[in-house]
Design a protein around this nucleic acid. Structure first.
Length: 443
RNA sequence: GGAGGAGUGGCCGAGCGGCUGAAGGCGACGGUCUUGAAAACCGUUAGGCGCGAAAGCGUCUCGGGGGUUCGAAUCCCUCCUCCUCCGCCA
């Protein structure tokens, strides 16, 4: 959410942002509703002032001990006069009631529409975000590591997993439908190793590990910007008006909702390992093969809540990106970093850097991480604030990035480290989490 | 799930129809004092929205929503949360 004052003064900028981001919003209507809203408030405020002042005077005139009453007596007014004055004021106020009621009834829907519209206004992207229609126009920033050249015909992760007896997609689908899977034996251990390794690295870097709810209230989904527009991507437990989160970013970012933090508390660095649930609505037919695009997965996520400043935000954006790159480097996987273009940005994101990891079976890079910064966008929705040095209340900035998501990362991991016989080398960084073993082999 | 009790400012706690956005205390911040610190004393210390260049002014908010009333933190309805006891249970 943006500041309505900012919106009023930057209508054209935001219209352009909406076009570039492919987000539908009715800015003209918002401006109009905002105008109505302020007008109604001014009228109501004036009436309320009168009701308050006169109403209070009625009370005073009815109380012989009040100074106002005594003043009336001193001015030579009789008790009857004073009583009459009170009656007169009260009658006048009674007449005001229908007028106020009418205004209040107009204000309700206006406020409601105002809030709905405000939720649809996108955050303008940073200046160095490339304008583009979709992910094909993301701009590569750098490549790290070389895709491995095989001297044999490499297998894909599905084949490797099936032959090793550690990935069972068929039965996953049997139990839960398309885009489901079952990890078994060493794949389960490998996934847990990867998650634990990633979490340990984050803890080492000062992030507080958390266990968070994955089934959250709607307001949390709205607050982080996933609702209303992404509602069809979430699994809803409608009976309980709760939603399954698609990422731990949601509960982590919302952790300090409706609080005013001390500046000394910032930056707040949190991470959580959680299961993530995604409907993948609208992705029918896309990435249907293997473990790439699935409904349920586990992820370690990192979130930073920092002070309100462009520079600070940028600094932390690079920090969370670096954290993820360090994980990939420790795993020895080749990847590249892309500057995500406007058409592929979410509505709250100022800028997003994706890490795409080399996946031999795709003969290309596939997204494994997504590092975003939001400025105040989420903080405003969540009422996530702090008091600065001048004791002024300001909105925080928020950022987040994947640390590692599995099983997607098992794709490059298994494929990159495979041997001709179908066994897989366990990268060194993970061995302590795999009982010191060096290889996954068929048992 | 059943039966009771309670929700007031950063915290504790008064108020139970009218000059109460809210006494008092604690904490925090600023100042006086002090060689420094403590103590003592003085002062400041809610957020949202609107108007305004600003100072400031207005309004809303005492768990949320609705109602009664000229007037509600105070009365009524409803929902939520927390605590205690009982039941069930990983």
């Amino acid at each position: 959410m943006l500041d309505i004052k900012f919106i009023r003064e930057n209508v054209e900028l935001i219209k352009k942002a909406a076009v570039d981001k492919h987000i539908a919003c009715d800015l003209d209507r918002l401006i109009e509703v905002d105008k109505n809203r302020r007008q109604l408030q001014q009228q109501l405020d004036a009436l309320r002032t009168q009701v308050k002042e006169d109403g209070q005077r009625v009370g005073l005139l009815r109380n012989p001990k009040s100074t106002a009453y005594k003043a009336e007596i001193e001015q030579g007014n009789s008790e009857a006069d004073i009583r009459a004055e009170a009656e007169r004021l009260q009658a006048g106020l009674s007449e005001l009631k229908p007028k106020m009621k009418a205004l209040e009834e107009a204000e309700g829907p206006t406020l409601n529409e105002f809030e709905q519209l405000m939720l649809t206004i996108p955050q303008p992207p940073a200046l160095d975000v490339p304008v583009g229609k979709d992910e094909t126009e993301n701009v590569e920033l750098r490549k790290v590591g070389e895709p491995r050249r095989f001297d044999f015909e490499p297998k894909d992760h599905v084949t490797l997993g099936a032959e090793l007896g550690i990935i069972d997609i068929e039965r996953g689908v049997k139990l839960a439908g398309t885009r489901n899977y079952i990890l078994k034996g060493d794949a389960t251990l490998l996934q847990q190793a990867v998650l634990r390794f990633a979490q340990d690295l984050m803890v080492q870097r000062g992030f507080v590990p958390m266990t968070v709810p994955v089934l959250v209230k709607e307001e949390v989904m709205y607050g982080t910007g996933y609702f209303p527009s992404g509602r069809d991507q979430a699994y809803l437990c409608e009976r309980d008006t709760l939603s399954l989160v698609g990422t731990a970013e949601v509960p982590l970012t919302a952790y300090h909702t409706d609080e005013i933090l001390a500046e000394a508390d910032l930056p707040i660095k949190l991470c959580a390992t959680s299961t993530c649930f995604r409907r993948e609505a609208g992705a029918a037919g896309r990435d249907t093969y293997g473990l790439y695009r699935i409904h349920v997965f586990d992820k370690v996520e990192q979130v930073i809540v920092c002070g309100n400043g462009e520079e600070e935000s940028l600094k932390f954006h690079h920090e969370i990106l670096q954290n993820a790159e360090d994980v990939m480097q420790a795993l020895g996987l080749p990847y590249r970093v892309v500057n995500v273009c406007t058409g592929d940005l979410g509505m709250g994101q100022v800028q997003k850097f994706d890490i795409e990891t080399w996946m031999p079976s795709r003969d290309g890079y596939g997204e494994t991480h997504s590092a975003s910064r939001f400025h105040e966008f989420q903080a405003r929705r969540l009422k996530l604030r702090y008091r600065d040095g001048a004791r002024k209340v300001r909105f925080c900035h928020t950022l987040n990035n994947t640390v590692i998501a599995s099983p997607r990362v098992l794709i490059p991991l298994m494929e990159h480290y495979q041997h001709e016989d179908g066994s897989i080398t366990i990268p060194e960084a993970l061995r302590t989490y795999m009982g010191g073993r060096e290889r996954i082999e068929r048992v």
